[in-house]
Simulated assay, not measured.
Amino acid sequence: MEEQRVEGEGSSKDTRTSTIFKLPPLQIDNEDILFCIDIDPQSMLQMKGLTRLDAIKQAILLFVNAKLTINPQHRFAFATLSDSASWLKKEFSSEVESTIAAMRELSATTSSSQPDLTTLFQLAAHEAKKSSTQGRILRVILFYCRSTGRPQHQWPENQRLFTLDIMYLHDKPGPDNCPQEVYDTLVDTLEHVTDYEGYIFESGHASARILFRHVLVLLSHPQQRCIQEYINIPKLLAKKAPLVEPMATEDNFPVSTQ
């Protein structure tokens, strides 16, 4: 938006022209966030002191509490991923107690095959249209735990109705594991369906702390994000270098008052 202002005195020919530029206000929408948690048996593999699934539960509780502190109008719902996606808690809610109840109901399945994300995207697209009518945007955060099975989906590339973030927990490469191939598939999937800039993080370390660190980066609102390669947070807490005493000069040499 641009306004032009002309300043002058009376009918003087000496007029001054100045241009004022104004940026229109940016509308930041409240979020409806759909968590989808992979409940494949690999979600029960041990990390340091707890299973992947337990660590994911703690990470989600941390995320929800922090997100509501930023803006209590955000809402959350929950789904699980086995062979396909299904609802765990369909109604979006801003109540922390609702999230706690969903986490208590969350458990792993005993077996599953190659997952199909098509159902998840169908659920998300349906909810995204409902959110849009309320002036909100929808985001999906997928926690994926498989090192052996690459996900598949069938989704039109021109239908981008929601933002997708992915947190990938995996094993080290081995005869039965192909985490790099799975990761590459997840990256392609994200780029295929996401509306705003979507983030993907991976961790092959058996540490919940790494998971929590990545999840806290996902607190960033999709409408305010930079592209992922520019992220430089969280910063490492490097040891401070010892302070060096300045050399005595004529200007800073201490003067005795005694």
Rank of each mutant, 00 (worst) to 15 (best):
Q224A: 10
V6P: 06
Q73F: 13
Q224V: 08
N252S: 03
I100C: 00
S256L: 09
P41T: 09
I70T: 13
S43T: 12
F92I: 02
E245W: 12
T257C: 09
R104W: 05
A66M: 08
P179G: 08
E157C: 05
H74V: 04
V217P: 00
S131M: 02
S86K: 11
Q154K: 13
L164C: 07
I70R: 14
S112E: 05
P242F: 00
K130P: 07
Q228F: 00
D195R: 15
F78H: 09
A66V: 07
F201R: 11
S131G: 01
L243E: 13
I39Q: 02
R52K: 12
F201Q: 08
I56Y: 04
I39M: 09
E7N: 05
D14Y: 13
A101R: 13
S11Q: 13
R146W: 02
E7Y: 10
K48M: 14
W87D: 08
T257S: 12
L34E: 07
Q228S: 01
F78E: 01
P179I: 00
K13C: 09
K240E: 05
I37V: 15
I227Q: 11
N65W: 04
P72M: 00
K22H: 15
T119I: 12
E3F: 09
T189S: 00
A102M: 08
K239S: 12
P234R: 06
N232Q: 09
P242V: 03
Q223R: 00
K239D: 13
R139S: 14
E245V: 15
L34C: 08
L117F: 03
M167G: 04
C226M: 10
V244D: 09
F63Y: 15
E3P: 01
R213V: 07
K129Y: 12
D184P: 01
F253V: 12
Q122C: 02
P173N: 11
A128L: 06
F35C: 04
F253M: 12
I137S: 04
K130M: 13
P222M: 04
I100E: 15
V96L: 12
K13E: 10
I233A: 12
P222I: 06
Y199G: 02
F92W: 00
D14H: 09
